[in-house]
Design a protein around this nucleic acid. Structure first.
Lengths: 141, 141
DNA sequence: CAGTTGAGTTCCTTGAGGGAACCCTAGCAT
DNA sequence: ATGCTAGGGTTCCCTCAAGGAACTCAACTG
């Protein structure tokens, strides 16, 4: 499908993938850890990890002389974390309830607890759903 | 699970949901249109639409004296479009290939073709995966 | 009053996910 | 050398959700 949203979903669209990336992002990067933390079946975890490696989002890297591996984010995968932060931001805002957000983000540049905001790469002002026109691009069908 | 990413995925985690929201966003908001455009089975489309309505992301609204309905984004749903734009941005960057991005976004504020950038809601500077520390928040388990 | 259209249901079949058990390699202890 | 353990997977079976095609229903239209 000629749609970047659909293409992205082909890579991380199935429900476990974002959770796997989240775990890898915060340093939980071995098979056993992931399996235990997520409660995912080993079979499916294998499939998802291979899929993410095949698509260049994760890298499988040995960490011992024994056949032991850990998974780390590639640059391509690191940029997907943007998506996770936006997802977390929406969940914090609409689903966290009384208790408040389960995690907080401290921004290195300013040192403050903050959250992500979407801005225009060109002018820097806020850029949300109602602030844009959608036009056909060069890769249009 | 005490994780805003997981909670968000409970709402829009299954692969069709973001595509449904994309279509509704660009004005394709009736059952038959959605079914034809996405090639989703009618049964599953019914389930997904009900799920999204139940979670306050879409609103089901009659548009005729006959029993005819269309689906529109609520404010909660409109904020999810942020997620779609980031998804599209990643897909444009990493998956579009030679042809270039299938759609372009023109930002009302500056009138330019642009893309979304993540910035800190506090200081306005860029805010990506490597620019933050993740800390336990009040809703932490 | 038969036909059409939008918006779903129903039913059957196929395929993906869960669970538990098994396997393989390399180190370590006896 | 022999067995034990641990990490990282396979294999097998079984269930449940997705696909597909057909059916329903309520209101307009010729």
């Amino acid at each position: 499908m000629a749609c970047s949203i659909a293409r992205t979903l082909d890579v991380i669209g199935e429900p476990w993938s974002p959770l796997i990336l989240r775990d890898v992002w915060v340093g939980m990067c071995r098979f056993e850890q992931l399996q235990a933390d997520l409660g995912i079946s080993r079979k499916v975890l294998t499939e998802r990890l291979n899929h993410l490696v095949d698509h260049g989002v994760l890298e499988r890297r040995p960490y011992d002389n024994r056949p032991r591996y850990e998974y780390v984010l590639t640059p391509k995968g690191t940029e997907l974390v943007d998506l996770l932060m936006v997802m977390a931001g929406w969940g914090d805002r609409w689903l966290a309830g009384e208790a408040g957000p389960p995690v907080l983000y401290r921004h290195h540049a300013c040192g403050e607890i903050s959250s992500v905001e979407l801005s225009c790469a060109h002018c820097g002002k806020p850029m949300h759903a109602d602030d844009v026109d959608v036009l056909p691009g060069p890769g249009s069908p």
